[in-house]
Design a protein around this nucleic acid. Structure first.
Lengths: 218, 218
DNA sequence: AATGCAACTTGAACTAGATTAAGAAATCAG
DNA sequence: CTGATTTCTTAATCTAGTTCAAGTTGCATT
């Protein structure tokens, strides 16, 4: 079954598709628009916040956080897709989360406890991010307390999504979970190799292939 | 294998065991102590906050949130244990979260979106809670903005725990997950029937029994 | 103490998903 | 364009976990 056969791309055209990089200004606009979902910043606050952003451009496969390294940053994905994954004692990779365009991602455990990370963050496709250092963020919380509210709401929404995922993982079979994933994340489905999607779903690539074949025959 | 055979009870004696109910004052102290982990409240702020708490005492099996009902409250567990669970299309229950003593619990999706809940909250053992109405909480956020920080930190910690759980669910076998659970939640393990623990782990009660027997023979 | 109900255990049969191997198709680098 | 590498598919075999049925044990009620 060919991936793109019957699924319409419904997310906005990737900026890379039109071969026109975002200017610095436009990149900053995307993160400010993301923040404006939950809080309103005045111009001074916007400038203050922008001053702590560190732009990074990653190639496919490039690592943002290594196993054993202490996470001192969190990331906003301007464009592209990151993954947060672990490696089990058999050397097998398990994707815990994707970090697609317009999402925030980090290894929160390492970041909060300042202990070595047990997870790894890298880019699955060429990706641009804003990196925010923990120290800088703590100062922003002091200077612009409404960011407490922003992240409270962001984290609430993250908990809702994770709860949904836990529920599905323990209560519905892999085929159903795959169908839910396609509907929920069409952008990721289009861009990311199937073996990574299988890993995220907690199944083998071979089994995902069987599921897709079965769906195609129905 | 008998449950209590080789496991030492390490959590403090249940208040109910010593047949001495907490006074109203002591109950309020427990939630204030919980809050003091992340923020400092002055006496006026404490009184303000306590004024929105609604005490509830539940019997085993008593429901706090029904399927299809819109969640208008969140809960702090003074003593006891709640569960957040779903029922799949085969009528099977899946426990998504426990809410043991000193934890905060709600159906966050329904609470945030003000849509009918797809989960159910009830008491697995006799339980006392403080119920906090959404409307009251929103006013507290206005009057005492440092609660934004409290819940941001609380939600961050919740995300860390859920991420750990997702990682374990997709990467280690049920036996390992059971061992992790026992170490991490000895209190729940002591008090809650095994069939609920099996449900939380995403396995059948029969399979949990087989795991326990295997462990006992090793 | 007796009875009924709920929880737990056990074994056999079954299934969803994993593993292994091999080949095809797609993508990438030069 | 070509060769190398990665991704994907397919089939056979294996295994973790489910289901079902039945019996045992623990708990609650009378």
């Amino acid at each position: 079954m060919k991936r793109n056969q019957a699924i319409v791309l419904i997310s906005p055209v990737s900026y890379q598709h039109i071969n026109l990089s975002l200017t610095k200004f436009m990149k900053e606009e995307t993160i400010l628009k993301n923040i404006a979902r939950f809080i309103t910043l005045d111009e001074l606050e916007k400038q203050d916040f922008i001053s702590i952003l560190h732009y990074k451009k990653l190639d496919k496969g490039q690592v943002l956080l290594y196993f054993g390294e202490t996470a001192k940053n969190q990331y906003y994905v301007i464009e592209g897709c990151l993954r947060n994954f672990s490696i089990d004692e058999n050397g097998k990779e398990h994707i815990i989360a994707f970090g697609p365009t317009d999402w925030w991602i980090s290894d929160l455990y390492s970041y909060l406890t300042e202990t070595p990370a047990k997870h790894i963050l890298d880019a699955l496709i060429p990706t641009e991010v804003f990196e925010i250092r923990k120290k800088d963020m703590e100062e922003i919380y002091e200077r612009i307390p409404k960011f407490e509210r922003f992240f409270r709401i962001l984290f609430q929404n993250a908990i809702v999504a994770q709860t949904r995922r836990i529920d599905q993982t323990i209560s519905i079979p892999a085929e159903e979970r795959y169908k839910v994933f396609i509907k929920k994340y069409p952008g990721i489905f289009q861009q990311i190799p199937l073996k990574y999607i299988a890993s995220y779903l907690g199944i083998s690539p071979e089994f995902l292939s069987k599921i897709r074949n079965k769906i195609a025959r129905t």
